[in-house]
């Protein structure tokens, strides 16, 4: 039995590299920047650090792709014209609103 599995060693090495390499951030730090990156709020330097991490890290690259796809799907599914439409004019509600207006 070895002390570390191959995967464990790989993750340890990756963690050390991301933590100590010049102009590099960890995945946890990357997470803090995601929204500001997508909103275009990062400085040039911050964006370059973010994108450098993105090039090196398969997990964050795929995470960000799925995050963006989720956003596209949410907007597409919830926003008109894909959102549900009313089956019929709610006559009772219209009547109640117009009645309430008189009081």
């Amino acid at each position: 039995m070895t002390l570390f599995s191959t995967t464990g060693v790989r993750r340890w090495l990756k963690g050390m590299m991301l933590k100590h390499m010049h102009r590099m951030i960890t995945c946890r730090e990357f997470e803090e920047f995601v929204l500001r990156y997508l909103e275009g709020e990062l400085s040039d330097r911050q964006r370059s650090v973010f994108e450098w991490h993105l090039r090196l890290c398969r997990e964050c690259r795929e995470y960000l792709a799925a995050y963006k796809r989720t956003l596209e799907i949410t907007t597409a599914v919830m926003a008109p014209p894909n959102a549900p439409v009313l089956d019929e004019v709610p006559e009772d509600l219209i009547k109640a609103i117009l009645e309430a207006r008189k009081h």
Partner: peptide
């Protein structure tokens, strides 16, 4: 994230 602050994300073979 694991204890090395690396993201845990299973590989994506397909994304709808």
């Amino acid at each position: 994230f694991d204890s090395y602050e690396c993201r845990i994300e299973a590989p994506w073979a397909h994304m709808a």
